[in-house]
Design a protein around this nucleic acid. Sequence first.
DNA 1: GGCTTTTTTTCGAGCCTCGAAAAAATACTG
DNA 2: CAGTATTTTTTCGAGGCTCGAAAAAAAGCC
Lengths: 414, 414
Amino acid sequence: MSVGIRHDDLRRRNRAMVLSAVRRAGQPSRTEIAATTGLSHSTISAISSDLIQEGILTESKPSETASLKRGRPQVGLALNPEAAAVVTVVLSLNFLSVAVIDYAGQVIAEEQRRLDTLTIPRDELIGECIAIVRRRLEDPDLDVGSVARIAMGIQGITDSHARAMLWSPITPLTDIPFADILEKEFGIPATMENDCNMMAVALQWRDPDRYRDNFIAILLSHGIGMGLVLKGELFTGTHSSGGEFGHMIHRPGGALCRCGRRGCVEAYAGNYAIWRSAMKMSEDAEPVDVGDADMRALAAKAREKQGPEREAYRRAGEALGFGLGSLFALIDPAPVAMVGVSAAAFDLIEPALREAIAQTAGGQHSKSISFDTEPNELPLIREGCAMRALTFVDQEIFAPGGQVRAGSAGKNVA
Amino acid sequence: MSVGIRHDDLRRRNRAMVLSAVRRAGQPSRTEIAATTGLSHSTISAISSDLIQEGILTESKPSETASLKRGRPQVGLALNPEAAAVVTVVLSLNFLSVAVIDYAGQVIAEEQRRLDTLTIPRDELIGECIAIVRRRLEDPDLDVGSVARIAMGIQGITDSHARAMLWSPITPLTDIPFADILEKEFGIPATMENDCNMMAVALQWRDPDRYRDNFIAILLSHGIGMGLVLKGELFTGTHSSGGEFGHMIHRPGGALCRCGRRGCVEAYAGNYAIWRSAMKMSEDAEPVDVGDADMRALAAKAREKQGPEREAYRRAGEALGFGLGSLFALIDPAPVAMVGVSAAAFDLIEPALREAIAQTAGGQHSKSISFDTEPNELPLIREGCAMRALTFVDQEIFAPGGQVRAGSAGKNVA
DNA sequence: GGCTTTTTTTCGAGCCTCGAAAAAATACTG
DNA sequence: CAGTATTTTTTCGAGGCTCGAAAAAAAGCC
């Protein structure tokens, strides 16, 4: 179970810590790193000199803003963009997008492609994913350094080890082990991540002041998804990617959900549910796909005048509010980011949502709960995948040797 | 944020690891400890020889069962009961109980006392708690060694730092900082823990095969509480003890809950709710206290024949089932222990509970979810408090020096 | 140009863990 | 019953890592 700390773990962990500090802070000096990590100057000096020699870090000459204090000027440390690269693959409804990202986090190549995900056969879907990655990797215009990791993100449920897509709303196909497929094809370690979890990871990097230890990212789109960060760590289920907020029960035996069950939050707040309600269709009506443009038009009509459209958003807000209330009963309230096309209609959702929360255990702090909105989920997902992959490189490739007992893991990066 | 590992942390953590291995395994030999911790024999030898010299561990002569293999026999290591002691204080409805427990986990003294918790004034409640602890500590019949920790458990909500009771169903009083009060009074570090969390801790020690990484302990009593263990760690809210399962929303706008809101799970499954429903009282009826004996009589009547009593338990099962279903949507299914007087009536609850779960996202694995029952919560709570306190002593007193930067923390236990 | 200030590197000391070998304690064997 | 085999535990030297102090480096200040 709990494993003792060996002597060689020390350097390994502290190396990872230095890399993490540099990635987080941008161009910190050795002194700053010593301060944030609590390690001595000598240790930081030794570790960073190693990392520079190995080509992982670079000294970025005088930091522009400085030079006002006297004393020896600080030398900034930066990630060497050429130290490695990672690839992100994001698969969403009718859309496949790939990006190559350097070690410093800059996009150096990308490609996007429409794809009829709802009808495409299994082999073809897999083939398209492999092909688009291959094109980017073999692009002669670009000297893609050593790609150290592929991170794929998808809407739907993935397994808890980030290896396979188990189920997804964007395709009837199930159980595709994308991580294994990509690994086998390219010989590069890969992961298969849940979209909402990646959104949460991205938010943590984008705005660490607001999204640090505890927060929630909710995807308001065709379906309802959630990424949850607790105590600074991404929360995942024990078997699956977890956090199926959209399938918490709002009204037992209620409206028909896309998942086939009844009364889920999503059956009131997903795009198809809002549409169904606005069109005065039965709650038992089979869920249909609604385009983003149609949803925006619906929101406009709801803003215009009272009517079934506005009522549909109110009901969505109510479902989300009670769901959040139950969630807050379990984990205490936390900041929430609403992402996706319906987040652009959050003005229509918020009043009923707040009213519902106020009736729940989380209601005491109802006022203090704040919501951000971000209508476009794709950039967030890609960013999250990129950071996921890069921190993997930081920790497992450039600070290797974690708790491997048997086996012939390479000893040092020379 | 993330702090580097210093050289002195190494020994500290490995000491803690050895203590943890001994506490978990009973009387492991040095060789066994080396195997479970992954540390070398030399390291274990050095650490345990220190711990023995400091009087924390003892060598427990030949382990009886052995002596069949040849070779030098293993020498078991055991916790020295006299190395320290801890005190547990459990405050529940009309009942206050205290125990003194030695370092090896054996109860060496206890005292219990009836108390009218619902009406007792604040000062008197605090006074009674202090008095009962003092009596046990100053008992001349018993040579209580150095008490290193007091762990108090209470039904209700505590803050996330385990310092204060914020709210409790057993008294109208709120915000009593019991941990600070006991610390000031006795000069011994203290904590104020939530009862259901302690139940979960106890289960983890009692049956580590079943309750290891992910499980749920639910208290079915006057109120509904929950202790949640995820990835082997007790889950707590960000501000409070968290896990207010009983106040997840079952039916928006539904039955009146003791907390003043409507439609909570507890408003259908708490003792008072079952009683209310069985007596065909209104769902708006003010919650009343129901004695354990009355509840047992009610269950007997429900078993006897169809009628409002049986229906009341069915409705409780339904509420618990949908609540668990929502919870399972978030964290994936896990084993559940039902504790408390209504757990003895779980046969009446289970059918509707399983039926409800089957209708939720957790339903796919509905069959594989297993329930244990334990009608008596008090021993569990005390056991949990004791283990909590003892592991604190292991980690913070006998392996001191964690991440203290400034300050004059004692260096070594001599 | 010398002095002050701040950052970074160097160097020796002190720990800690590890592996190998030795020591200890028992069962087996003839 | 003495010698051998086996297993556990201790001992000892080697190698690494971090730390503090001091030195070196690189500026601004007077």
